[in-house]
Design a protein around this nucleic acid. Structure first.
Lengths: 204, 204
DNA sequence: TACAGATATCACCGCGCAGTGACATCCACA
DNA sequence: TGTGGATGTCACTGCGCGGTGATATCTGTA
């Protein structure tokens, strides 16, 4: 919420998108409406209609704004020049994703939103995120050998799905599927388990 | 929606709970309100307040009504007398859970609901479900040997988390984490991957 | 039959929401 | 200087919601 109150359309639009992100991150998509957003952005709701054609447009803008998410968060984990083995790369990706996801309330809320009421816009945001992963997996497949009898995309999908679910569940509950998830040592347990799965599946 | 329109309180209550379940299963928790519920149940909303003290009471009733879920769906998978190895049991549990979950729109919506706006009642429903699993795992641990260096609860939590997420994602999208999830053969791929993970982790 | 209590219905309130038309203000440029 | 368009504000409508008090209707029982 910078000043921005100076007849500067670009600045106002930024303020609105920024307010939307913070509002969703804080409050979730419930209570996310035109009135609440205008209040948070400190502008009149009319501007939301004028500049974004309503809430959907704002969500789209968030999506575009989030294009950098994969790049910023994931690329560093992947582009390491000294690529070791495939399982090692996958491990790095999985643990990095776990951490990035854990630290990002907005992403968690968006995911919950998508589960709750699927919409094309939300789907697009998620798809974009997934695409980053897919691209990397494809590249890595070319570069490094994988055991022939392993359906790597399916395995990886399961691993990432597990990570997302655990993070989401832990965000709203003290326990997840019987595991206490309240302290950092619990997360260490999860990390160890992820490593074990990857090692077991890929190095046999 | 049976007849039920005959001054029979018990029957009316059943109609309300039943309507609530079907409404949530169909429409999700969005648009789940007193007015909509009364409409669906074919009664006046006042009765919802009188008999259940409002929506929360209805959700509680659903929870109690769902006590049978774990028992009905999971017990058959677990209580097989000729218990083979631990991984075999776990495999049976995982695949059974996948199928049961896939066939149960209500459960999916409830899970999404919990992610979206955590509430004590929803948490209770989920906890109940988790408890069934936990109990079983505890029993199984006593009965059958597990590799010493494997944190079975953590591994199992991840596996179940993956399953739930994949099912939830596939329910609202054609793809999940890069995998197409539109045909039954895709599900077969998932099942194979689950089996592979369990085998790899537990039988080394 | 008459009545008490359980059951069901109805009418209504206040609220916050999404959306819009009309108006105010500012500024670039003629 | 003044005027048109961009930017921002305001007031209002209509709607569905959650919630509640008053009322109607049925039924067992005295």
């Amino acid at each position: 919420m910078p000043e921005a109150r100076s007849r500067d359309r670009a600045e106002t639009e930024k303020a609105i998108v920024s307010a939307a992100k913070s509002l969703i991150a804080k409050r979730g998509f419930q209570n996310f409406g035109v009135n609440a957003l205008a209040r948070e952005a400190g502008c009149d709701k009319q501007l939301i209609y004028r500049y974004f054609d309503g809430l959907e447009g704002v969500v789209d803008a968030i999506g575009e704004d989030l294009t950098s998410w994969v790049r910023d968060r994931l690329r560093p984990l992947l582009a390491l020049g000294e690529s070791r083995s495939y399982p090692e790369l996958m491990e790095r990706l999985a643990l990095g994703l776990l951490q990035a996801y854990r630290d990002d309330p907005l992403m968690k809320k968006l995911k919950a939103w998508e589960f709750a009421e699927p919409s094309p816009q939300l789907a697009r945001i998620t798809a974009m995120r997934a695409k980053g992963l897919a691209v990397w997996m494809h590249e890595a497949r070319g570069a490094i050998e994988i055991p022939k009898d392993v359906d790597a995309p399916a395995i990886n999908a399961l691993i990432i799905a597990a990570i997302e679910n655990i993070v989401l569940t832990a965000a709203t509950s003290e326990t997840a599927y019987g595991m206490s998830m309240s302290s950092e040592s619990d997360w260490e347990r999860v990390r160890k388990a992820i490593k074990l799965i990857i090692q077991s599946v890929y190095v046999k």
